[in-house]
């Protein structure tokens, strides 16, 4: 479990994190979203016990990160931003080092190292100095170090940054497979990642929490939620047909591919009505889709709205 109470970090006049409070339970995967400089990494650094908060407190697995730092650090697996590791060491030396600091000794320790190596597919590069590895491998070595002691709480700062799509997929399924009994926080810029791994998302900007909801709830705030998009061979004919649907609030046509998007009036569902109207007018439709909502649009409107509010005050 992770809990923060009014957690703040100030650098002189600048407030990087402003009285953030939240609680993450075991089984939850919390996604930290926010523009660059929003305070995501600073919050994670305070949770990991690297930075001391200016005010407020945080507990990791029940241990206060300030008062009981060693106990908190033992319960925590932390991947810092950029996944730093000692470049001159080989992958095996590095993992042995982490295991030794974590007190994983003997056969059990060896078994666990082998398990993690297999899980992150590091067999091929075990005897290579980390400096000589590609970005994707470096990131996975960092991840291996973070999960080596099978921690109850995981904090991963941009775990899939620099990975190719296949590797991203693998890391996401790794996170999903660990999610059941762990408390996990990840930060990311990739909104599709929130969809893929997170059960809950917190959007922060300017050091403050602007939204705290499940990914589905966030999506439902999108203008595109329940909207219907289609492409038709005859644009004008399709528009005429759609004009007859009462629950449509607005129509938008993408000038590039002539894709029409129909937005429903608040609380209405228009998919059936739209498809019936098109059928009735015998419009030839190449594609017809119900939109779930666009996270990137919600993200933009939430974070830019906040920035605008700040300018005004």
């Amino acid at each position: 479990m992770i809990e923060t109470r009014e957690l703040s970090k100030r650098y002189g006049q600048f407030t990087a994190v402003d009285a953030i409070s939240f609680k993450v339970e075991p089984g939850q995967v919390l996604g930290f979203l926010g523009p660059n400089g929003a305070g995501k990494s600073t919050t994670m650094k305070m949770l990991a016990g690297f930075l001391a908060p200016s005010a407020g407190s945080a507990t990791v697995a029940g241990f206060d990160v300030q008062a009981q730092p060693l106990l908190a650090k033992r319960a925590l697996g932390y991947l810092p931003e950029g996944a730093p590791s000692y470049g001159e060491m080989t992958v095996r030396e590095f993992l042995d080092f982490i295991a030794s600091v974590r007190g994983l000794a003997g056969d059990a320790g060896e078994r666990r190292i082998d398990e993690v190596i297999a899980r992150l597919h590091l067999e091929r590069v075990l005897e290579q100095p980390i400096d000589t590895l590609s970005k994707g491998f470096k990131r996975r070595v960092g991840l291996a170090g973070a999960i080596l002691h099978d921690p109850k709480v995981l904090i991963l700062d941009e775990p899939t940054d620099g990975l190719d799509p296949n590797q991203k997929q693998e890391v996401r399924s790794l996170i999903n497979s660990m999610a059941r009994d762990k408390t996990i926080i990840i930060s990311t810029h990739l909104l599709e990642e929130v969809h893929a791994v997170c059960t809950r998302a917190i959007i922060i900007a300017g050091g403050r929490i602007l939204a705290d909801a499940t990914p589905a709830e966030l999506e439902s705030r999108s203008r595109y939620h329940q909207a219907v998009s289609l492409t038709a061979t005859n644009l004008q004919q399709a528009k005429d047909a759609l004009a007859k649907v009462a629950d449509i609030a607005a129509l938008e046509v993408d000038p590039q591919d002539n894709r029409i998007t129909a937005f429903p009036k608040p609380g209405r569902q228009i998919f059936v009505a739209v498809s019936d109207a098109l059928k009735a007018d015998q419009v030839v439709v190449r594609e017809l889709a119900l939109e779930g909502g666009r996270l990137d649009e919600v993200f933009r409107s939430i974070t830019q709205g906040a920035a605008g509010a700040e300018v005004r005050t």
Partner: peptide, 14 residues
Amino acid sequence: KSGTIELLLTLPVT
């Protein structure tokens, strides 16, 4: 410079 200080000081060592 390499950022490993963050790794080192978040391991369970004083």
